[in-house]
Amino acid sequence: MAGISPARKHAMAERWLALAVQTYPVPSRRFLVDQRDPFRNPAGQALRKRIPELVEELFGEMDAGKVGAALEDLMRLRAVQRFSAREAVGFLFGLKTILREESAADWETLARWEERVDELALAAFDLFMRFREQIYQIQADEARRRVAQLERMYSREG
């Protein structure tokens, strides 16, 4: 899958980032994109860091580790941000339009890329569900910690 220049990849990543940011309310979009300090803007910077990585992998090896790490960060964030599953994952499909408009690839190449986008989306959906389930687990763990010593005490007495 050679032939995509770094500049083109960058342009695609920027468009895709803009699409992801559109899932947030209008007054917050500029801040999410513009504030580059990762500690002042952790959510926006997660998007800015991870989206180009996914673009790189899409045209590269689709390395499971790298794709997984990038998607994990994105889905960990979006799993707690008011999104339904559809809304959380949906922006990934927007890459298909970007691929068509930003590349001069033939139909077959385009189809292969789109399959990869589908793979990304399915993996993202799995992760979204994993994080939603984790929220319930950590909720239960916290409840146990809250009275852990009382439980120990009563079990020793009992």
């Binding site: 899932t23 559809r86 499909f93 139909w107 589908d118």
Partner: peptide, 19 residues
């Protein structure tokens, strides 16, 4: 790009703007 190409993204198109 061919006219006949499927556009799966249209099936999941979401309005991103608030009301």
């Amino acid at each position: 790009m061919p006219e006949t190409a499927t556009r799966p993204e249209e099936l999941v198109r979401i309005s991103y703007d608030p009301p």
